[in-house]
Design a protein around this nucleic acid. Structure first.
Length: 764
DNA sequence: ATTGGAATGTTTTTT
DNA sequence: ACATTCCAAT
């Protein structure tokens, strides 16, 4: 519906009446640069939606002139819905979405201007690693000396800092950087010839487009007269530059963020974007939203007291009118398994005694790997749960294989997809054949698909008649489906494609649980496609269903699909929980080395990010916050001793209630263990704190973890002592378990390779 | 070219 | 523990 058709304009009062003073000011300050510093739970989403509704309903701005960048697609959907509700009619042409989806869309519209075709493919992290690997093989750079993923991270980081391959080459300081620069250049070439963008390109390429085409930039500057960016603290340099370009003339830019919730530094997010906003724009107005509407006083206190230990932050004080509430509970568990039991037990109890529903609970952890034990316990207790994140549906091997067919049909130049499926399911086109074609294509400076198209008229491509036939069959099949696509129902088309390729047969024949799983996933995928066809609006999309579907699939995340209306317990990483809230939050694994993560404890910036992560997790809780740590934890299939997280020690004593959770079978082991600890003089700061309550495990049998020897983690940089060589530092580790070997540099300068099993090392 | 077993890497977080 | 990749045998 067009803005001119509005009949029932909403009175401004309704949009502003239930806001507090600073929220109201933030909503109505529509002109000029605005920075909204919004603490956790201070209603920033509310402010953003009201502001946009206010612009449309009160200031009569067309939705077409409003840009709103959110952190997830889900948030975008919810905001759009909310805005429609507020103004009483649908808003069709509002630009709302994530950076990646909005600028992906713009790239599709303007693709031809930068030498791309509309039907480009979006490569995810795995795809781009695959392409980098091919590039390295071509350049004869060893992937053993230069791990592909490390190179990929460097290239990605350079891209996000808007450094070109040539510039990177110039300022390369280490040999790795020099290599990375060369690979970067080759990688870019290959991306382009595959008509593909990686995730970073969706931000970086629009910048180049705008720089080289002032008219295009002018068009979007004019379109986006009012710009909003949510979660501004998590934008990176490229995103910052992109927004600055667009806001340059009108300066109507409103950014919302909280420096305490900046948790994506590792993804090149640049916290200074928010800290320096004042420097970047002139005559800005700053609004602070400091009243929290989400959590009890106790919860808020815990979160604030921990995060205030950070040095690099803007000062602000969150407060709440809510009641003091229950004390935050810290649960001291003897093992990770016991931790899982305790979490689930507390949930069961709370459901029975407080009549809570499953959806009131979230279990948050630092790493995805921690979900498994908890899942097991939830299953045993027959509690329904969903896991957000981890191995995402569209990243599963079988789904990626299917997607590769669709992508190749959509974009013939998509080399990564072609190589993925040309011999999957196996059809007799092996490595030798593939190498021949690749070399041939390279000699003639032609894309691989062009060579395939010309077979058998390819002189000098020395292939057996059988192979030629196989290649032709494959090529004809792809061509056939390209042809067939517009002649039948999309779902049906995909189904017969999967039948003919043999993927379905492959998994149906093989009688293993794994194959069955994959088969079911493919069926689920077909359902997802079917759902999509029902949703698909050809006119609005202005593109064919296949490319629209592929684009959506590349940018959808688990959190987008997570449904808060389902009555289940939710499990996810603290990262994924950003922006969400739950009545009861259990954070698990609060141990040194895990949360904060080992690698992050060295560098103060990284440690502070971990602390902010704790802050984000804690502030998800509305009524109850439960913090768990375990004293023994299995990692990498080895049992480790653990000590409670420093973040727990940073919480003032009077805010916490301590509990202990020990399994019966573990009691004696536990005592024994505590004695040993005492002997080792490893006093934990909490041992003399009062322990108010002990939960005892009743009948569960603990299955044998205690029979394993507790091993010590050996990591590069660690100091160790050898009975005869004295003390030294680990400079390399290889292998695991009994076969683990360490290279240790001793004080006298000698380097020795030692087998852990026999070396009798003592960690210092 | 395909297969199966061994070796190796992976777990930090994600658009 | 799990998955992918490597390598040798067929």
């Amino acid at each position: 519906m067009d803005i001119a058709n509005i009949t029932n304009t909403v009175p401004t009062d309704d949009l502003l009446s239930d806001l507090n003073e600073s929220q109201r000011q933030a909503v109505t300050a529509t002109e000029g640069p605005v920075l909204i510093l919004a603490g956790a739970g201070s209603g920033k989403t509310k402010v953003l939606t009201r502001r946009i509704a206010y612009l449309i309903a009160e200031k009569k701005v067309s939705p077409f002139h409003i840009l709103a960048v959110t952190f997830t697609n889900k948030a975008a959907g919810e905001m759009a819905e909310r805005i429609e509700y507020l103004i009483g009619h649908s808003v069709k042409r509002l630009w709302i979405g994530t950076f990646h989806s909005i600028f992906g869309r713009i790239l599709r519209l303007e693709a031809d201007k930068i030498g791309y075709k509309k039907n480009y493919t979006i490569y995810d992290t795995d795809d781009s690693a695959a392409l980098i690997k091919t590039a390295m093989e071509h350049l004869k750079i060893s992937t053993e000396l230069y791990p592909v993923n490390q190179i990929r991270a460097r290239i990605s980081s350079a891209k996000n800092r808007l450094i070109t391959p040539a510039q990177y080459q110039q300022q390369a300081e280490s040999p790795v950087d020099a290599k990375a620069a060369v690979i970067y250049e080759e990688y870019e070439k290959r991306l382009k010839s595959a008509n593909a963008f990686d995730f970073d390109d969706l931000i970086v390429k629009p910048i180049l487009l705008f720089e080289n085409h002032p008219d295009v930039l002018g068009f979007y500057q004019n379109a986006f007269r009012y710009i909003h960016v949510d979660e501004y603290q998590d934008t990176n340099h490229a995103q910052y530059r992109l927004i600055r370009m667009l806001a340059k003339d009108h300066q109507n830019i409103c950014v919302v963020g909280d420096d305490d919730q900046s948790i994506y530094g590792w993804r090149n997010a640049d916290i200074t974007n928010i800290l320096h906003f004042e420097r970047d724009y002139s005559s800005i107005r700053i609004f602070k939203l400091e009243q929290n509407y989400r959590s009890t006083k106790n919860i808020l206190q815990v979160a604030s007291q921990v995060v205030r230990n950070n040095k690099y932050r803007k000062h602000k004080t969150l407060w709440t009118e809510k009641e003091k509430g229950e004390p935050v509970v810290v649960i001291d568990c003897d093992s990770d398994k016991q931790e899982a039991r305790a979490v689930v037990e507390a949930i069961t109890e709370s459901i029975h005694e407080e009549k809570r529903s499953f959806s009131d609970f979230a279990i948050l952890y630092r790493t995805n790997a921690q979900s498994r034990l908890i899942e097991e316990q939830l299953r045993t207790a027959v509690i329904p749960y969903v896991i957000v994140g981890g191995l995402r549906f569209y990243e599963r091997k079988e789904i990626k294989d299917v997607l590769a067919y669709l992508r190749l049909i959509n974009n013939p130049a998509d080399q990564v997809s072609l190589e993925r499926i040309i011999n999957f399911p196996t059809r007799g086109i092996g490595k030798t054949t593939l190498d021949k074609i690749k070399n041939y294509a390279e000699r003639l400076r032609q894309p691989m698909y062009a060579v395939l198209d010309r077979i058998p008229l390819t002189n000098g491509l020395d292939l057996s008649p059988r192979t030629v036939q196989l290649l032709r069959d494959f090529n004809l099949m792809i061509a056939k489906y390209r042809e067939l696509k517009d002649q039948m129902l999309f779902t049906e088309w995909v189904r017969i494609l999967l039948e003919e390729t043999g993927i379905i047969k492959l998994y149906r024949q093989e009688n293993t649980i794994d194959a069955l799983n994959r088969y079911e996933n493919i069926m689920e995928f077909l359902n997802a496609i079917h759902d999509y066809t029902l949703r698909f609006d050809a006119e609005a999309a202005q593109e064919d269903i296949l490319s629209a579907f592929l684009k959506e699939v590349s940018l959808v995340t688990d959190i987008d699909e997570w449904n808060d209306k389902k009555n289940t317990v939710t499990l996810m990483t603290v990262h994924s929980s950003k922006g969400l809230e739950f009545p009861v939050v259990s954070m698990v694994g609060l141990e040194e080395g895990l949360f904060p993560l080992e690698n992050a404890t060295e560098d103060i910036k990284e440690l502070e990010e971990e602390r902010r992560l704790f802050y984000v997790g804690a502030t998800r809780a509305q009524k109850r916050l439960r913090l768990y740590f375990a004293r023994k934890r299995m990692r990498y299939n080895t049992l480790y001793n653990a000590t409670p997280s420093r973040f727990i020690n940073e919480i003032p004593e009077d805010l916490i209630e301590w509990q202990q959770s020990v399994s019966n079978e573990q009691q004696s082991f536990f005592n024994d263990y505590r004695r040993k600890q005492a002997r080792a003089k490893t006093q934990f700061p909490y041992t003399d704190r009062p322990i108010k309550k002990t939960i005892r495990e009743k009948s569960n049998v603990y299955d044998g973890d205690d029979t394993r020897a507790i091993k010590t983690a050996f990591r590069v940089g660690q100091r160790v002592e050898h009975p005869s060589f004295g003390s030294g530092t680990i400079i390399q580790t290889e292998g695991r378990g009994d076969k683990q070997k360490l290279t240790v540099q001793f004080l006298n300068g000698d380097e020795k390779k030692l087998i852990v099993k026999y070396a009798n090392l003592i960690v210092r």
